[in-house]
């Protein structure tokens, strides 16, 4: 599996004509963990959604190349897209509260996702769902399988979501701010879990987040985006050696426990970044 994005541009119509929200983004992703970091409006989520063709109908997508494992996403039929979405590539969203069906048990939802591409009985599917819940390190998978989403905590809900996305054995997992609705302690657990599953199954992971230190902690490579463009691409370990003033600014303006500052440095944005 290989994702190739070359010179991707996404525009939306506005009263002042077409407005580009993503401008000339290029990146590749194999069986590795790629982080995409940026502030709100940087186009990070749009980029990931374009890959699954999940953008609103008004969006105009252009690219020299937008490939998922050799399939041209721009030209693929809706049928081909359905074979990719949820099967070969899973999407995990920020808040499991909204992403899970409130009137189906967690087990039934995972079983459905699992059954989608296999010929199997309901009993087998349910057993598979319980296995998957055990894989996402839920201690009592039987009980959780029988619970409804509102009976689960945020962290538990996100585990269910991950189990559901793993059910069809995808090759790529796109996680859009998967932990920003969770407490710090749960956040670390979920990310560790994802990291572990991804490396064990040899999947690709695209982790989208606003939290630069967090992402660089868990990914192999980090792409920093600002205002629809890629500012800098870094190996995760090289965060301290980041050159771009935007990346530096993002790191420096964070209050820190170990390095107290009386005043936080404020980022000054240079229009030249968007050349």
């Amino acid at each position: 599996m290989k994702v190739e994005i070359d010179n991707l541009t996404i525009s939306f119509p506005s009263p002042q004509g077409m407005r580009a929200a993503v401008r000339g983004v290029s990146l590749t992703l194999g069986a590795e963990k790629l982080g995409i970091v940026g502030e709100s409006g940087s186009g990070k989520s749009l980029t990931a959604r374009a890959l699954l063709r999940l953008l609103p109908g008004s969006a105009v997508v252009r690219a020299d190349k937008l490939n998922f494992d050799g399939i041209d996403i721009l030209k693929a039929s809706e049928r081909d897209m359905r074979a990719i979405r949820g099967r070969r590539a899973g999407l995990i969203l920020q808040d499991p509260k909204y992403a899970l069906n409130p009137i189906m048990t967690a087990g039934a939802q995972i079983a459905e996702a699992w059954q989608n591409q296999r010929k199997a009985s309901r009993k087998e599917a349910m057993q598979a769902a319980i296995d998957l819940l055990a894989q996402v390190q839920i201690r009592d998978p039987k009980r959780v399988a029988e619970s409804y989403p509102h009976e689960l905590s945020g962290g538990m809900g996100q585990r269910v979501m991950i189990a559901m996305m793993l059910a069809p054995d995808p090759e790529l997992l796109i996680a859009d701010e998967p932990t920003s609705a969770l407490d710090a302690s749960v956040q670390a657990e979920i990310l560790r879990l994802m990291e572990d599953l991804v490396s064990r199954r040899g999947m690709g992971l695209m982790l989208i987040s606003h939290d630069l230190p967090l992402v660089s902690h868990f990914c192999d490579r980090v792409v920093v985006m600002y205002a629809g463009q890629v500012m800098e691409e870094l190996q995760a370990g090289e965060l301290v050696r980041a050159k771009h003033p935007y990346t530096r600014g993002l790191l420096e303006c964070l209050p820190s426990l170990s390095h107290p500052q009386t005043r936080l440095p404020v980022m000054s944005r240079d229009p030249a970044w968007l050349a």
């Binding site: 502030e39 606003h210 939290d211 600014g249 993002l250 303006c253 209050p255 936080l264 440095p265 980022m267």
Partner: peptide, 9 residues
């Protein structure tokens, strides 16, 4: 956003 957080703090 973190850069805005710094300004507000």
């Amino acid at each position: 956003d973190v850069s805005v957080q710094a300004e507000v703090l």
